[in-house]
Amino acid sequence: MDRIKIQNLEVFGHHGVFSEETKLGQKFLINATLYTDTRAAGYSDELEYSTDYGKICHFMTKYMQTHTFKLIEAVAEQMAQALLLEFPLLQKLDLEIQKPWAPIGLPLENVSVEISRGWHKVYLSVGSNLGERQQFLQAAVNLLHECREIRKVKVSNLIETAPYGYTDQPPFLNGAVELETLFTPQELLHLLNKIEAELGRERLIHWGPRTVDLDIIFYDDEIIAEADLIIPHVDMQNRLFVLEPLNMLCPGKVHPVLHRTVAQLRQELLEKAEHR
């Protein structure tokens, strides 16, 4: 990914824990590395294809001047998100907020907070086998669309499949969703659980019937093993109802643990089924 660097942008703001800081204000310095594709701008030499660093500098200056935070951690976090939402060509940024001569009662030249934030490519598996199945799935997708921290939502065709694991239940409609998000994996999991609850999901039987089921399959190429979240999804390679819709969206996506593409995993599972 190409990078545009902004160094030592001086901004006067009113951020700090002490009342003197918020009343009198002080100078802050901003350093930013913008990750974006500069190729179209480089070939065309047209500003419309560029991530305009001039506009970004003015945006950061105005943001610092019109907001007040106690912590520079909050300044960095909130401004990074605002930038990523405001400038669509910006895929990621490294942002440093420097606070010269921070009032800690000791000789100190500078304190700074530096963070990296960006859009993450995510793939979900979605399913429903209760009530108006297609309507439940569409409602879940609509709720994803409504979230400002999510963009570029794409949905596969839906397929009907037999239940998996617990088989004494109605057939499922299954699909896959591709999206980009600013959420961390845990934040995204929390959102998905909230959407499931809002659409009436009840967790009564393991692998049991549900109005809507939303599972994170891939989050970039991250490998996560936590008590309530495993990414890539631990059993996806054994679930044709996951691989078939996923193959419609990203056949070439490589599983970061198994090191095989979605298309290869699907083909292997089909071949296993043929030999049973």
Score class of each variant (00 low, 15 high):
V11H: 03
V11R: 04
F12W: 14
G13D: 08
G13A: 15
G13C: 06
H14P: 10
H15Y: 10
H15G: 06
V17H: 10
V17K: 09
F18K: 12
F18R: 14
F18P: 02
F18L: 15
S19L: 13
E20W: 04
E21N: 09
K23E: 14
K23L: 15
K23I: 13
L24P: 02
G25R: 03
Q26E: 10
Q26S: 14
Q26C: 06
Q26M: 00
K27E: 09
K27D: 11
F28P: 01
L29S: 07
L29P: 03
L29F: 13
L29G: 07
L29V: 07
N31P: 06
N31V: 03
A32S: 11
A32K: 02
A32Q: 05
A32L: 07
A32H: 02
L34M: 09
L34H: 05
Y35V: 08
T36S: 15
T36A: 14
D37H: 07
D37C: 13
D37I: 07
T38Q: 10
A40C: 06
A40V: 13
A40Y: 07
G42C: 02
G42W: 00
G42A: 12
Y43L: 11
S44A: 04
S44N: 09
D45P: 00
E46P: 00
E46D: 10
E46R: 13
E46T: 00
E46Q: 13
L47C: 02
E48K: 12
Y49L: 05
Y49E: 11
S50Y: 02
D52F: 02
Y53Q: 05
G54N: 11
K55Q: 14
K55S: 09
K55H: 07
I56R: 04
I56W: 03
C57E: 13
H58S: 14
H58Y: 11
H58W: 00
H58T: 15
M60N: 02
T61W: 00
K62Q: 15
Q65Y: 08
T66R: 07
H67M: 10
H67I: 06
